[in-house]
Design a protein around this nucleic acid. Sequence first.
DNA 1: TTTGATACGTTATAGTATAACAATCAATCG
DNA 2: CGATTGATTGTTATACTATAACGTATCAAA
Lengths: 164, 164
Amino acid sequence: MTTPGFHDPVHDHERCLAEALQEAEQLCRDRGAQLTPVRRRVLELVWSEHRPQGAYELLEQLQAERGRVAPPTVYRALDFLLAQGLIHRIESLNAFVGCPRPSHVHNGQFFICEACGATAELSDPGLAERIDRSAAALGFAVNQRIVEVRGHCPDCSIQGSPNP
Amino acid sequence: MTTPGFHDPVHDHERCLAEALQEAEQLCRDRGAQLTPVRRRVLELVWSEHRPQGAYELLEQLQAERGRVAPPTVYRALDFLLAQGLIHRIESLNAFVGCPRPSHVHNGQFFICEACGATAELSDPGLAERIDRSAAALGFAVNQRIVEVRGHCPDCSIQGSPNP
DNA sequence: TTTGATACGTTATAGTATAACAATCAATCG
DNA sequence: CGATTGATTGTTATACTATAACGTATCAAA
Ligand SMILES: [Zn+2]
Ligand SMILES: [Zn+2]
Ligand SMILES: [Zn+2]
Ligand SMILES: [Zn+2]
């Protein structure tokens, strides 16, 4: 399993990727969901960085290796991966990032570095509870909690400039 | 001041709007910021509903009353209103909603009805603290906290269908 | 009067996402 | 076997969201 938090810039990312792919395959087998070549490849591309990537960014990479690929192809693959919980959509970036814990249904919290793009996902149940309590006070029925925290990761935080 | 939470569908909305506009004028006077006719009108349009509205939705209304208006006009007005804290951007909708407490700098939490669009803004300092604690544990420096809760408002919640 | 700052107008274009319909393929059934 | 069905992908066109770049108008300070 991928460790939570930000990764060392020089970590063994081959392993991140391999583990994510292996877990995705297992999970799809168990569910009878079809992780087709296109979907699998898009997942690999999403996982190629610890940074949310836009649909058209992924599209370009697909086109580089397969010739003509149209937007619906990548959007469909992304829809599938979202439905399976294998990736998350980062609303404030219109971009997508791999989920390190896809077998567990959750709404994570995303910490997004505005300098390097690196994004860490946490899942703090207490935070979800707190949101749900506010919702209950409003008589609001929660479907989804979107929490995206913008700022600077440890590598990009500079002493003396708290919010550059 | 606008009361927190969801509004009764038949509340006195003229008053919501009038109060928001008056507070905006006061606040801009105090800051030496120019609430020009275009900006003021866009703010009125945003406040015409307790539901986030898209830039092009606002643009259409401007065009209906002023003839040719181009997208930059409305985006510039929105940028100004955002900078002054008079409106908030809802990332998951690409839309904008009036802030009921513009004189107080904050990152609110938005509860968004997926049925009728109605959106309530809360500002729970404890929630922000909790996010900041997670951030601190990651060594992450927070600039902005985006919290958008999707679900159903009291008027649209139906007994027996928790997450329709 | 010149200058600089601010806001707004105008045109074009970039970036994100989906609708609609055709083609393919594998599994199933009469 | 041939037909039917459902899931996936291909293809084309279009809708929706946002900004770049440059020109104009206004006003106040120098
Ligand atoms: Zn990694
Ligand atoms: Zn109202
Ligand atoms: Zn607010
Ligand atoms: Zn509702």
